[in-house]
């Protein structure tokens, strides 16, 4: 049972354990909720009506529906595209590149650049959504200062290029995290290593590919794991920006789940979507961790 090696704590163990009870209850409730979602995913529980009081057990029906109807699979694809371009290519790639460039550059406005990137990250999701909503409108900034001078007709970008706008806004929003992480990681790389490679005649690209990337492998893998998990379940920015539209073009899994559960009212089916999301995210995490282990071995 609970014991302690400290003499002074032996007498205090009981009050300390009692003080921890509220937090333990919260944590247990959290786990209980997750289990509850698994249970509802096997029922036809609904938001309103008779099935909200008396749901019946339907076995794997909800899960079969996930695969046989195209709504879910389409959302999986949208989420994958969104995550790949905005998190992996965008946030992680641009963040790494920026960290490397900023380390070496003597650019005068460096702290200014840092603040600019940080602002995107610190602004609440809904503020980012509002701003990008305004920029992408037909008389918004992108149209007025980029597209019109180039001779294009002004368009409502949220209707024509919704997924692109959503991806770019998420890059704008999230790059700072990766940048900060890689920046800190670069501080641990010793200068001598890079200089030695330079002396051996390696050019910038070779130094990046054969020296820097192998040294940063662990940090890159960890960051990819985090960013992928977060982005895969991201809700607020996309929902506030497009609401999943136009049509279902930007309906990522979290929005699909929310709409099925609370707009359509099918809580059982929504639970199945949530569990499927959890499994996908879990699968991705295991994949990343495995990959990282194999490489470092």
């Amino acid at each position: 049972m609970i014991s302690t090696s400290h003499v002074w704590l032996r007498r205090s163990a009981k009050p300390m354990a009692i003080a921890a009870i509220p937090a333990v209850l919260f944590i247990l409730l959290f786990i209980f909720y997750a289990g509850w979602t698994i249970w509802t995913s096997f029922t036809d529980l609904s938001l309103l009506g008779r099935k909200s009081i008396n749901p019946s057990f339907v076995g794997f029906d909800n899960y079969i529906r996930l695969i046989t109807r195209d709504g879910f699979l389409q959302s999986v694809w949208t989420t994958t595209v969104f995550t790949f371009f905005s998190a992996i290519v965008g946030q992680c790639g641009i963040g790494l590149l920026l960290a490397i460039i900023m380390k070496s550059s003597r650019f005068r406005l460096k702290s200014f650049v840092e603040f600019a990137i940080l602002f995107g990250w610190l602004a609440p999701d809904v503020v980012a959504a509002f701003m990008w909503n305004a920029f992408a409108s037909s008389d918004g900034m992108i149209n007025v200062i980029i597209l019109q001078p180039l001779g294009f007709e002004s368009v409502n970008l949220l209707n024509e290029y919704a997924i692109e706008v959503v991806i770019i806004s998420n890059i704008w929003k999230g790059t700072a995290w990766s940048y900060l992480l890689f920046s800190a990681a670069l501080d641990t790389v010793s200068r001598e290593v890079i200089e030695a490679a330079y002396m051996d005649g390696a050019n910038a690209l070779q130094r990046l590919r054969h020296v820097l990337l192998p040294l940063l492998r662990a940090q890159i893998a960890t960051n990819l794991l985090f960013v992928t998990i977060w982005t895969y379940a991201f809700f607020s920015l996309i929902y506030a920006l497009t609401g999943g539209g136009p049509g279902r073009e930007t309906e990522v899994l979290s929005i699909y789940m929310y709409k099925q559960a609370f707009d359509v009212g099918k809580l059982g089916y929504g639970s199945a979507v949530a569990i499927a999301m959890m499994l996908i995210v879990g699968g991705l995490s295991i994949f990343y961790v495995r990959q990282n282990k194999d490489q470092t071995r």
């Binding site: 944590i27 959290f30 786990i31 209980f32 909720y33 997750a34 509850w36 979602t37 509802t40 998990i229 895969y232 379940a233 809700f235 899994l253 979290s254 789940m257 929310y258 559960a261 609370f262 809580l267 929504g270 639970s271 979507v273 949530a274 569990i275 999301m277 959890m278 995210v281 995490s285």
Partner: peptide, 20 residues
């Protein structure tokens, strides 16, 4: 480990019980 796992659990995983 379970605390770390709860940390990465998507909000959607508990939203229905929370609402109920």
């Amino acid at each position: 480990w379970s605390l770390a796992l709860l940390r990465i659990l998507p909000q959607t995983a508990i939203i229905i019980p929370v609402f109920l």
